[in-house]
């Protein structure tokens, strides 16, 4: 009666199941509010500066505010909330067994979980931040830079925080520690720290697309895209190994 489940089928099943588990009214509402508030701040500050200063200065201020609020807070925090919950919630409430004890390989479950995280968290960040870039009205460069950096940042953060949800019990705490301490402090004072901070890659994309110099934003566009892709692949491999060796309650 029972058979094996193909990789593609398992991805679809894991994705559908986890999207349903991740989307709660409370989560979406709270994170949308954060995104909208930050976006309004970015838009209002940029417009205010634009009225008094030149277009170039308004662009610089808009980019600086977008980088510091949008890509330091909104993108990583939203990804953390959903990605850490993808496996974290199932582990916590004992329902992981309903995915684990099945004739399915582990890698499609990981890919499905990551896709579920991205399906939910990307719209929650991309829409408000893009709208903010449009309202700021400081040039199309900022809009395209925001879209590209948001996509790359969300995909990479989601993969890393999904792995964190499999590795630790308090993944949200560890994730906030990574965002505040590693990306906020260590990346600024250490070369290695900078290379291990996703924030450096999103800022580099913005700097490259807008031509504005940004702190931690000195990598080429190619590097800023390829390295996060490698990070995602590494997170997939580690998550698969972890899921395989996990003790399931």
């Amino acid at each position: 009666m029972s058979g094996s489940v193909s990789g593609l089928r398992a991805i679809v099943i894991a994705h559908r199941l986890l999207v349903r588990q991740l989307v709660t009214r409370g989560r979406i509402a709270a994170l949308l509010v954060v995104g909208i508030v930050v976006s309004l701040v970015v838009a209002l500050v940029s417009r205010a500066v634009g009225e008094d200063e030149s277009t170039e200065e308004a662009l610089e201020v808009g980019i600086e505010v977008m980088s510091n609020l949008g890509f330091t807070i909104v993108v990583p925090i939203v990804a953390l909330v959903f990605a850490s919950a993808a496996f974290g919630d199932l582990k916590e409430d004992g329902t992981l067994v309903y995915l684990w004890l099945r004739p399915m390989d582990r890698w499609p479950i990981v890919v499905g979980a990551w896709l579920a995280t991205v399906s939910v968290s990307l719209p929650v960040t991309l829409v408000p931040l893009t709208v903010a870039a449009l309202i700021a009205d400081v040039g199309s460069e900022l809009v395209w830079a925001t879209v590209l950096a948001c996509v790359v940042g969300n995909l990479a953060y989601s993969a890393v925080f999904m792995l964190l949800g499999l590795l630790t019990k308090n993944s949200v705490v560890w994730g906030i520690g990574y965002i505040l301490i590693w990306e906020g402090l260590v990346a600024g004072i250490s070369g290695v720290g900078e290379k291990l901070a996703i924030r450096g890659y999103t800022r580099s994309i913005i700097a490259d697309q807008t031509g504005v110099d940004l702190y931690l934003g000195d990598l080429s566009l190619m590097t800023a895209i390829v390295v996060p892709v490698l990070v995602i692949l590494a997170a997939f491999v580690l998550s698969t190994l972890r899921l395989r060796s996990l003790d399931v309650a």
């Binding site: 009666m1 058979g3 489940v5 089928r9 099943i13 309903y98 099945r102």
Partner: peptide, 14 residues
């Protein structure tokens, strides 16, 4: 869902 994750032929009927 349990049926689909097990790869059964007719998850709905089962």
């Amino acid at each position: 869902l349990a049926g689909r994750t097990h790869g059964v032929a007719d998850p709905s009927g089962r």
